[in-house]
Amino acid sequence: MDYFFELFFSGLSKGSIYALIALGYTMVYGIIELINFAHGEIYMIGAFTALIISGILTILGFNKISILILATIGAVIYSSAYGFTVEKIAYKPLRGSSRLSPLISAIGMSIFLQNYVLLAQTPNFVSFPELIPEIKWLEPYSSFLGSTDFVIIVTTAIVLVLLTILIKFTKIGKAMRATAQNQVMAALVGVNVDKIISVTFIIGSGLAAIGGVLIGSHVGQINFYIGFIAGIKAFTAAVLGGIGSIPGAVLGGLVLGWTESFGTGYISSDYEDVFAFCLLVLILIFRPAGILGESTQQKV
């Protein structure tokens, strides 16, 4: 039974991180119907920024908790700035063109950012400092729930609650929902669509950065390429849950995390990624709009 719980919690923490990244995909998709391929790279840049900041602070001799907090804040600020800039450069001039052009532009941006970090930092894996402190009272459960996993799960839960409040109850959230439903109508009733799109990118990138910091301290090493596979997985999670739907992205992330964790635990560890994609194909065959997505009839 311990083994089951171990897999359950490792799947939960993995799924939480997928969910954090998937939210960025799903929010952007909900508003401008674009698969933002560069989103994984934003997450990677968040992880690298956190690494650099925490490196400096470690050398300067700060204590662990303050390093964790400062590095996370720095990562969120920088990732958001990158997300904002990427949108302005690669997607905004393409608004109104065919659907494929922004996608290609996004793939190009993703390749560019990967190589930018590769050249400016390092092509090798770098070890990420252990930022999350051991939690004392978790020790009796440590056979199946490590403190890193615990922090990941709790952080994700807090972030999700805050995001839900933002979207459901604030003015900007209302404007975001309106823009997602119909851009032209939203603009007519006085929503600044360009600003809302920027805000969406900023929030999505910030969430990805939190994911980046958490995964960095969970896995213990990062390189310039981590964004790609995480990006694909997170996008899979977003599609699983029904793209455009925020609870869907979270559910999709968790389902994906559990599938991978139980699949590798009980079947074979070589096929971790295969399980994810097979699940995706199966769900899309039987529920083409995703688990929570509404299937809208295409109109003429």
Binding site: S105, G108, I111, Q114
Partner: peptide
């Protein structure tokens, strides 16, 4: 050779922006 993938990615973006 170090910069070639960088240029490759950038030119994909530029191409889409200016000549979609």
């Amino acid at each position: 050779s170090d910069y070639r993938m960088l240029i490759f990615g950038a030119s994909m973006v530029l191409m889409m922006v200016f000549r979609p």
